[in-house]
Simulated assay, not measured.
Amino acid sequence: MSTYEEEHNTSGNSNSRRDLRAQIRNLYQEDGSSTALLQLLAQLIPESMQEELLNEKEEGCPETFIDSLPRVNKCDLKGADACSICCCGYLDDTHPLVVKLPHCSHRFDLECVAVWLSKSRTCPLCRDDVLSHKPKVDISNVELEEDWGMYG
């Protein structure tokens, strides 16, 4: 009777990882393109995950989302508060334009976070997906309000 390691070929697991890395590196360098590498990865990744990865776009946030970020009032800023991206104090500017991300309440200069969010959908600090926390509009309330305005 064979052991679990022999049956599943897991003995020396760190060596097998190194071998896989070496195979991937060799595949990538052999033909100079990523087609062989993609074929190998397609064999390793289940079909359901492949579809998700193909459908997922690595684009940033839409401009409308960036423009709709809530502004922070200058009165709410403290002297020591600074943007985590550029490290400049908010109150160093005579007219600071500071926004707050709605899902995590992290504050940034609008100019800094606009560039970040145009390329990424995550908060620069906590890396949480900012678009997954969009407030959802309840259509039934909107319809009720429209109907009420029509009769009242």
Rank of each mutant, 00 (worst) to 15 (best):
H106V: 02
T35R: 14
V113S: 08
S105D: 14
L53R: 03
Y4P: 00
L20V: 08
D93W: 03
R17C: 14
G12H: 04
T94W: 06
E143M: 09
P135T: 10
C123I: 01
H106T: 03
M49S: 12
E63K: 02
L53M: 15
P70Y: 09
D92M: 02
L131A: 11
Y4E: 10
Y151F: 13
Y90S: 10
E5P: 00
D109S: 07
N141S: 13
L41V: 08
L91K: 06
G152Q: 05
L97T: 08
E51I: 10
K100C: 14
V115N: 04
K134Q: 12
D81T: 00
Q50T: 05
L101Q: 04
T10G: 11
E7M: 07
P135G: 12
L54E: 13
R107F: 00
C75Y: 07
C126N: 11
S14C: 07
D76H: 10
G12V: 00
S16A: 12
Y28D: 07
S132G: 05
C83G: 10
C104L: 04
H133R: 12
N13C: 08
E51R: 07
E146A: 15
E52A: 14
H95R: 11
Y4K: 02
R17T: 04
K136L: 12
Y151A: 10
R21D: 06
V72L: 11
N15K: 02
N26I: 03
L117H: 05
E47A: 15
C83P: 01
M1Y: 07
A42K: 09
G152P: 02
V99P: 05
S132L: 09
C61P: 00
A80N: 09
H133V: 01
Y151Q: 08
K119M: 05
D109A: 09
R25W: 01
